[in-house]
Design a protein around this nucleic acid. Structure first.
Lengths: 279, 279
DNA sequence: GCCGATCGTCCAGCATACTGAACAGACGGC
DNA sequence: GCCGTCTGTTCAGTATGCTGGACGATCGGC
């Protein structure tokens, strides 16, 4: 059950939208996503969002008619059309398609967990995952968001920004979210870490996201102006990150990044002629 | 580029929504998903949907502010938040979580492509996929929709419906969509096929989706009332569907279906204590 | 089995979000 | 280089979608 909470205005920009109903619908979806799996009724949603109950009910019914949410009893939960749209988004990102092909060809990294993410503000959204042969599954689910400052992908992506853009994103930030005792907590520490990343050519997450797990990451520039940088990472148990393997994995990441960065790719039309799949 | 098309009213229910802006926003997302990868401007969207240009622009800006669509130049394409919401939806479906665990434990099927889908009307939406060890990737992408009548999952799911529900879904259907020359094209042929499925205990797609590829599927009942039935399938090249392997794969599917059907699952709380992932 | 609380739904009035036309800029072609 | 056609954006007026309150159904507790 969703815990009651005082009135909040979800995602600030509410006040000045030219299509308030749409913005509110988005806030509803966000709220349902935070408590995925649990259904919430109109009253509860209205209380949480600080919006009139009737409006919420109208919007939810419209969302339900389209399949964006599904009715569970009298409440609402995320709907199956979101899987369809999410899949369509992922299919529309060229880097995702190429990532799957390229990741399994990596000489050393193909047996590890390799992931692709995109920077969004100060968070990373994970877009694709190559599951290696390791029995332990340490991976984030696709679509999951993690703070950029505690992940190898995030630090690599932030380090690839020019200084003015970086300062813009850090403006007003006083404290950084931490997931373990090793997570970077201060902006000052982050700055020096990013300097190291730029110098070294790759980023490292040394148990900053999960104890006992390390990640290595490199940035992948976007192909269109304004398109936030991407980053690829390899995740493995710290005990497996031996001195002889790590350099090979770093090489693999640079190889992968090179392939995903290169706009000269002959298989541009591959997607449109691909086998439509079977079920 | 999107081809021009005459005015159409996307997904009929437009006329009588109590939150028209939300319904329109959904229609926009649908349209962008159909032509994923290509950006579309307000004018083009307005023409396609038969709606005022200004309204479309307002809605698109609201969607862009939330990340549900992204701006590409002056046009719009699907946004990264859809990946987040889609992932949250998939995480909210208990069967998906259990599917990943169960599929890789199948004695014979774990080396093949195993998929999970849900019935929606007369289409299947693919929710999860276990990639086997086969070099050829025959899989649909997650979120993809295929006609239920040409897929093993779809026929298994339809066969699990009671007659009144089945007739309701087939009402008014004259012709069935076909993907290959072997696809079922008539409702009469479908009825007799479903009778065979019920008798036999599993469904088969014999090159009805893709030439040279066969699938076997079994239904998995939903756990909540009104929740459309699920189905699992195993996909393989027809040349690999030998008489000694197929019975083993069918056994695996029934095993899988049994595990996903059984509401008595001790790992119910697993999701809430799972490792949050690393990046 | 009664009652209180809370739920989801309905309806009419008002404020507001939507509409339609006019605006300036960017291409592309004869 | 000009012009026709397209784009995306802006703005004021009005129809319309949103709001708040009341209704009936449901659940939980003393």
């Amino acid at each position: 059950m969703l815990e009651s909470a005082p009135i909040i205005d979800e995602s600030a920009a509410e006040a000045e939208s030219l299509a308030p109903a749409v913005t509110r619908a988005g806030a509803i979806l966000d709220l349902l996503a935070e408590n995925a799996g649990e259904a919430a009724g109109p009253s509860e949603l209205a209380r949480r969002l600080g919006l009139p109950k009737s409006s919420i009910a109208n919007i939810c019914n419209a969302l339900a008619d389209m399949g964006l949410v599904r009715r569970i009893g009298t409440g609402f939960a995320l709907g199956r059309k979101l899987a369809e749209l999410g899949g369509a988004y992922l299919a529309s990102v060229d880097q995702v398609q190429e990532f799957y092909d390229a990741a399994q060809l990596l000489p050393t990294g193909s047996v590890e967990t390799v992931q692709l993410a995109i920077l969004d503000g100060l968070e990373m959204t994970y877009l694709a995952r190559h599951d290696g042969r390791q029995p332990v599954r340490l991976t984030s689910q696709i679509g999951r968001r993690l703070p950029a400052t505690v992940t190898a992908t995030g630090k690599a992506a932030l380090a690839s920004l020019d200084d003015t853009e970086l300062e813009r994103r850090l403006a007003g930030i006083l404290e950084l979210p931490t997931l373990t005792s090793k997570s970077i907590g201060s902006v000052a520490a982050l700055r020096s870490e990013l300097a190291v990343v730029r110098e070294r050519g790759y980023a490292m997450d040394d148990e900053e996201t999960v104890e006992g797990v390390v990640c290595f990451g490199v940035a992948i520039p976007g192909r269109r102006p304004g398109e936030g940088p991407y980053a690829a990472s390899i995740t493995l148990l710290k005990v497996r990150a031996t001195d002889d393997r790590v350099p090979l994995l770093i090489d693999d990441l640079h190889l992968l990044a090179g392939r995903l960065s290169d706009p000269l790719r002959a298989d541009r039309a591959r997607r449109s002629v691909a086998v439509p799949g079977a079920g």
